[in-house]
Design a protein around this nucleic acid. Structure first.
Length: 841
RNA sequence: GCCCGGGUGGCGGAAUCGGCAUACGCAAUCGACUUAAAAUCGAUGGCCCGAGAGGGCAUGUGGGUUCGAAUCCCACCCCGGGCACCA
């Protein structure tokens, strides 16, 4: 017998060749015209399924996280195909972005060139991994044929009033020399990209009106199949608060100051009023008072603080009196005004009513400044706590209770009831109204950088902001000599490009020189895949109906807020503009865990980076893919272990060798995989194990339990090895053929090879195997016999034995008798198919 | 501080609806093959007592519910993630 050696370096390229030559994974937008990949099992029009992994940013080489993401996505894509779906499984590149530009600054190499090199390396590796991609739909966001439509979408939003320019206090990254969106600054105030401490600057920038969609972005989370923690993160980020807007008037200067509060029921407890240092009226209020200089100093100091210092709730409260008062609208009290940095300009109205009796922060401030603290809510069980003693131990109290010290109309009322009553009163008096506030801010999308899609706007002396007409798109990114950011976009230096004619009046005008945040590019790419070649429109709505929304989206949790929120916003806005007829882009989401090495995140500085290319070179793509799925549940973090990789490699080798040997023993391949009529003995046992495996793997794939699916195939192989000499060749061929068929979604090359050797057929064209119900159950099983809940024996029981017979079997078991003898059986619990438990005394 | 995950052999993990804890893999030990090693194949395998049959103890800790708990409930400890002066 010829020597059989498992050689992935020979097997893998050979099958990749077949799939590339035959364009196996391409699907058309017209179901009837499809090739084999889209063929329905029944021969009719198959259901469509869109399986998508998050768009990769091509930088250098793909890393192990990409391998995991695509191993998961590809397994799902293959599984769905073989269940009879036409599967759209495309690939592209998020090709605009800072790393390529920073590289250009250092080396002078045009970002287009370094990006092209990275893309080529990604393509090469994705092919070497054997991922089943429809390459005919490949896109890259930096190509004019793509960003032409990014610009078109921007203009659609602009024309609808959803893109606007505004001056605001914005986050500025001093290292990247550009503004950032709120979402791109982390909790400590660092730039999400480069880690530099972010500054605040007053600048005019482009925003997208995502806040208009806050309510829908929140509510529609209920209807999609996403991991609960991702939904929670989005809910927290949107941060909806119900409350009221209440107007406090400063009589001295005759100006009304509205505040937002979630607790209008505590209005009678407001004893002072606080404004954010950035509030535009702060200096105006202080002007001419004794406090003016103090206020100026305080504001200057506060504005120079970093987010990190400012955001620390632990540090002592600071602030300065403005020397003015406002009127509390519910009782006419004059309460003093302060400026303090614990009040944020970006939230609510930039000013608050302070209720030290019932808010921790206001309480801390009142203590520091010797301001009155008044209880206006008493816990229900303690109605006597109405005394206005010098200090009230129970404050601040933020729970529910009964109103006290407020007004005869409300005292004694439950605070929730009082809340509505007070808001209704304010409304009648014209002093306030109920209101909802969101933490979410509008999305700042302009960037003062080169390597992005130009914002297609022209500034004209007489016409103002003019959108570039659709037929003049794309506004192509010009070449520049100097990419160094200088606080304005490098594009500003491209004079020939900047100077243009006004599309409206023809007079000379200037182009917008900022480019778009790269998250704009990736907020709609999943739509483009559906109709990637369309040069007349971004997509044909009819084609979208075939594929969208994405049935299964796969990616890392790090995008839980940024990308996933932006893409949802784009979908809703484009739907409102009549371009889409669905509301959510991603029906189901799966977030894969990180791959670590020695327990920590892989990084160049730690020198613990595992290169997928090196692994594939050493053991092959099938081993790498299987290993990454076998280490543990894919949604959890997994630690890379070279020993573990060897284990999988051995497993695939054993499978391949036994199959190759069996195929050789069997002579020429036989197309039909039949097990023969095994009715007893080892043949039946192996047949049963095969059907058990089919059932197990099918179920596990449905619930993303790839690790246990692979373990089940290992069990089947172990059984094959054990019984290889004692079963018929047909039975062995049947078991091994099914093992290959079931493992194909994880290890496509070796499984295609095995299946070909055994049957001469292509495994990817075979329907997913179905387990025979009758073979899943055996006619005898091992009955567990317990006494007082402890396992004392096991006996053979017939599948059809009734409860009484089972009890009898249990009582008769030798070791059970030893534990029961001389004691009284008080209860007998029977779980048919499983166990009998005798309770004795 | 608040909100999510998670804690099971030497290690990664399994146990899908409250019913055999430790599947599968790694590492380890022993054996076969070999001049030898690698590769491969076979066997052993939670801890403690016992020659064995068998028994006792084990799923972060302490309680509870139940005939029966890794799984449900209460309290606590530890690890990871998210949010955090958002009025």
């Amino acid at each position: 017998m010829a020597e059989h050696r498992y050689d992935p370096s020979e097997i893998e390229p050979r099958w990749q060749e077949v799939w590339a030559r035959e364009r196996t994974w391409e699907v058309s937008n017209d179901g009837a015209a499809d090739g084999r990949a889209g063929r329905s099992r029944a021969g009719g029009h198959a259901s469509s399924s869109y399986v998508l992994e998050m768009l990769p940013y091509p930088s250098g080489e793909p890393h192990i996280g990409h391998l995991k993401c695509y191993a998961v996505g590809d397994a799902i894509a293959h599984f769905r195909r073989r269940l009879g779906s036409r599967v759209l499984h495309p690939m592209g590149y998020d090709a605009f972005g800072l790393p390529a530009e920073n590289h250009a600054i250092k080396t002078g190499v045009h970002p287009r060139e370094s990006t092209a090199a990275s893309i080529a390396s990604f393509q090469r590796q994705f092919r070497s991994w054997g991922i089943s991609i429809d390459w005919s739909r490949e896109i890259a966001t930096h190509e004019p044929s793509y960003y032409r439509w990014t610009q078109w979408i921007f203009l659609e939003l602009f024309r609808a009033g959803l893109a606007y320019r505004k001056e605001a206090a914005v986050k500025w990254c001093p290292k990247d020399q550009t503004v950032l969106a709120n979402e791109q600054v982390d909790a400590e105030g660092h730039c999400e990209r480069c880690g530099a401490l972010v500054e605040v600057r007053q600048l005019e920038q482009w925003f997208l009106r995502i806040t208009d969609y806050a309510e829908r972005l929140l509510n529609d989370l209920d209807a999609i199949e996403w991991p609960e923690h991702v939904k929670t993160m989005q809910r927290n980020w949107i941060g909806r608060s119900e409350g009221a807007e209440v107007t406090f008037r400063c009589e001295e200067i005759g100006v009304d100051y509205p505040v937002f509060t979630t607790r209008p029921d505590t209005l009678f407890g407001a004893t002072f009023f606080v404004m954010a240092p950035e509030h535009p009226d702060v200096m105006r209020l202080a002007a001419g008072t004794a406090a003016e200089q103090d206020v100026r100093d305080y504001v200057n100091h506060a504005l120079n603080e970093t987010n990190e210092e400012r955001g620390n709730a632990e540090r002592p409260k600071t602030g300065v009196s403005l020397g003015r008062t406002v009127t509390n609208p519910v009782n006419g009290e004059q309460i003093p005004m302060y400026v303090a940095d614990y009040v944020l300009m970006e939230y609510g109205t930039g000013a608050i009513m302070a209720v030290p009796g019932h808010d921790e922060r206001d309480h801390a401030f009142a203590l520091a400044f010797g301001l009155p603290i008044r209880r206006v809510i008493a816990p229900r069980e303690d109605g006597s706590a109405t005394q206005s003693g010098e200090q009230d131990e129970g404050l601040p109290y933020s729970g529910d209770g009964v109103l006290v010290n407020s007004h005869a109309d409300f005292d004694g009322m439950g605070n929730r009831e009082a809340l509505s009553a007070i808001v209704a009163w304010l409304d009648r008096e014209g002093k306030g109204h109920s209101s909802i506030n969101y933490r979410l801010r509008d999305w700042l999308v302009s960037r003062q950088r080169y390597w992005g899609a130009p914002i297609p706007i022209v500034y004209c002396e007489s016409c103002g902001m003019v959108p570039v007409p659709d037929d003049q798109l794309p506004v192509e990114l010009p070449d520049v000599d100097d990419y160094t950011p200088k606080g304005r976009s490098p594009l500003a230096a491209a004079e020939d490009w900047v100077n243009t004619d006004c599309p409206a009046c023809g007079a000379s005008a200037r182009r917008e020189t900022d480019t778009m945040d790269t998250f704009v590019d990736s907020s709609w790419y999943f739509l483009r895949y559906c109709d990637a070649g369309n040069d007349r429109a971004a997509w044909d709505p009819g084609v979208l109906r075939e594929w969208m929304p994405v049935d299964q989206y796969i990616g890392g949790v790090e995008h839980a807020i940024l990308h996933l929120m932006y893409a949802r916003f784009f979908t809703k806005a484009l739907a409102d503009l009549g371009h889409l007829d669905f509301q959510e882009p991603f029906e189901a989401l799966f977030t894969q865990g990180m791959v670590t090495k020695d327990g920590s995140k892989m990084s160049k500085s730690k020198g613990n980076v595992v290169s997928p290319a090196a692994i594939v070179e050493r053991v092959g793509a099938d081993t790498a893919r299987c290993y990454i799925l076998f280490v543990g549940p894919p949604d959890q973090d997994a630690d890379w272990s070279d020993d573990g990789v060897e284990g999988i490699h051995r497993f695939l080798g054993r499978l391949w060798r036994l199959a190759a040997e069996t195929a050789e023993r069997a002579g020429s391949p036989v197309a039909e995989l039949t097990a023969g009529a095994a009715s007893a003995g080892d043949d039946l046992a192996l047949l049963r194990k095969t059907h058990w495996t089919i059932d197990k793997v099918s179920g596990d794939l449905r619930r993303f339990a790839f690790n246990t699916a692979i373990a089940a195939v290992m069990e089947l192989l172990n059984e094959c090895s054990r019984l290889r000499e004692s079963v018929g060749l047909d039975t062995l061929r049947f078991a091994l053929g099914n093992a290959a068929s079931l493992l194909f979604p994880f290890a496509p090359h070796v499984c295609a090879d095995i299946y070909d050797r055994l049957t001469g057929e292509r495994v990817w064209e075979q329907p997913w195997p179905e387990a025979e119900e009758a073979l899943l159950e055996s006619e005898v099983y091992e009955l567990v016999c317990q006494v007082n809940g402890k396992v004392r024996d096991r006996v053979q029981a017939g599948a059809d034995a009734g409860p009484e017979a089972l009890k009898e079997l249990c009582r008769a078991a030798p070791n059970v008798r030893a534990h029961v003898d001389g004691r009284e059986i008080v209860k007998e619990i029977v779980v048919p198919g499983k166990l009998v438990n005798l309770v004795v005394r």
